[in-house]
Computed example of a mutant assay.
Amino acid sequence: MTTTAREWEFAGTRGAVTARIWAHPDPRYVAVLAHGYGEHLGRYQHVAETLLRHGATVCGPDHLGHGRSAGERVLIEDVEDIVADLRTVVESARADHPGPPVVLIGHSMGGLIAARYAQLHGAGLTALVLSGPVLGRWDVLTDLLAAEEIPDAPIDTATLSRDPEVGKAYTADPLIWHGPFKRTTLRALQDCVGRINEHGSLGALPTFWVHGSDDRLVPLEGSRTGIEAIRGSDLTEKIYPDARHEVFNETNRDEVLGDVTAFIDRVLA
C-alpha cells in the first residue's frame, strides 16, 4: 500500500486535467476528493493517507485552471465542466475497481462541485461528505460581483486554521493561486449555487456535513441554507466549536477525519 500518489492526465472538458490516485491493493471503497477554490489536491496528502489506512483507494483531480491542470488560472466558465471532469475521474476509478462503493468528499468550492455531482449522478454514489461547502448563500459572491473592481487582496491565511503552520504553507505554495477572483468564475459559482438550490433534495443519499463554527471564509449560516435546500432523508451534521474554514487542516484534524471515517463505516455497514 503506497502513500505516494500516482499522477495521470486526461483530456478534460476544456483542457488537460491532472488527477492523482493513492491505490489500495484491496479497497473496501473508493474515496473521491474534490478540492477547494485556488488550491490543489496535493494539499490533501494527509486526508488521503487516513482514508488509505481506512481501506480506501483515494483519487481526485486538480480542477481545470488549478494546480497541475491546464487552463487559465482559476478561470471557471461553468461549474458543470468541473463536474464533468470529476465524473471522468470517478468512472476511471470505477473501471479499475468495479466492486467497491464510491464516497465523494468535497471541501469549500469542492463541496459545491460535489453537491452538484450528487444531484446529477447520485445514483452512482454510496455517500457524500461536505466540508465547509459553498452552498445556499455566500455573501462574498454577491459583494464581489457588485463591486466595480474586484480587489486584489490575498486571503487572510489566519481564516484557514488555528494552526499557524497551515497558513505559512499556504502562502509558500506555488501551486496555489494568490491573486484576485475572476468575475467569470464568480458568476459561474453564483449560477451553480442557484442551480443546486433549485434542483433540491439529494433523496436517500447518506450525507455528512462538517463545518467550523468560526468559519469566516464560508460562514456557517449561509451554508446551512444550502444544506436545508438539498438535504434528503439521511443527513448528519457536525459543527466544530471555534474551528475555522479548513476543518481537515484544523488543530483537531484527527477528530474530524475520525468522524468522517466513522460516518463511512456506518454507511458501508
Rank of each mutant, 00 (worst) to 15 (best):
S213R: 07
D234A: 15
R231S: 14
T184C: 07
D85P: 12
I230Y: 09
P151W: 07
Q119N: 12
R94G: 15
F248R: 00
E9R: 15
L41Y: 06
R183L: 02
V74M: 14
G203N: 02
A114E: 12
I155W: 05
E7V: 08
W209D: 00
E49K: 09
A153F: 07
H46I: 07
A84I: 03
L86S: 09
A114K: 13
E228G: 09
R6N: 10
R187W: 00
D173E: 10
R137D: 10
I82R: 04
G222W: 08
V218W: 04
T13F: 01
P100I: 01
D152N: 15
W8C: 07
L52A: 14
A95N: 11
D26W: 04
G55A: 10
H199Q: 04
W209A: 06
E221K: 12
T13P: 04
P98R: 15
I155T: 14
V74Q: 14
D215S: 12
W138R: 03
V256W: 02
G36C: 13
G15V: 03
V134E: 02
H199P: 00
H178D: 07
H54V: 08
Y29W: 11
G15C: 06
P206V: 01
L64W: 10
V193C: 10
V218D: 05
E80L: 09
